[in-house]
Amino acid sequence: MKIELTVNGVARILEVEPEERLLDVLRERLHLTGTKEGCGEGECGACTVIMDGKTVNSCMVLAAQADGHAVTTIEGLGNRGSLHPVQKAFLEEGAVQCGFCTPGMVLSAKALLDRSPHPGKEQIAVAMSGNLCRCTGYDKILRAVERAAGEVKE
C-alpha cells in the first residue's frame, strides 16, 4: 500500500506492507537508524519519535497509521553545528552513557518542553517515565531536562 508522510520536514511517498511498523519504515526504508528498537512491544521508549507534536513508540504504530502525518526523528533535531537545547543539555550534564536510550530520551524531553516550557520535577519525571535507561539511573537525564528548561539551580 502507498502512504504519504513527512519525515523531518521532507515529504515522502512510500510503498509499504500492511504489517510494517513505522519503526521499520524509518530504520529499514529511510535508513534513519537513530530510532532504536529495544523491545518491540511499547515498553522501553527507545523507538520514540514525535508524530504531530506528540511522542509515540514507533514500534507500536503501523506505517499505515502514519499516513498523512508529520514525523520527527532524532536526525531531524540538530547537528554538530547547532545542537537542539535538549541535546546540548544531555551532553553537558553527562546524561549519556551507552547512548542507546538517548535518542528516545531526547525526543521525549523535546516534546515535553514544546508543550510545557517550564515543567516541574514531577512533570519531567512523568513525561520521561516511558523511556527506560539501564545505565544512568536517570539522575543526570533529569538534570539535563531541567537544564534544558532553564531551571537548573546550581
Partner: peptide, 14 residues
Amino acid sequence: PLQAEGQIAGGIAQ
C-alpha cells in the same frame, strides 16, 4: 567525577 557520579546513579538503579 562526572562519569563517576553517573556510575553511582546507574549502580543504584540496578
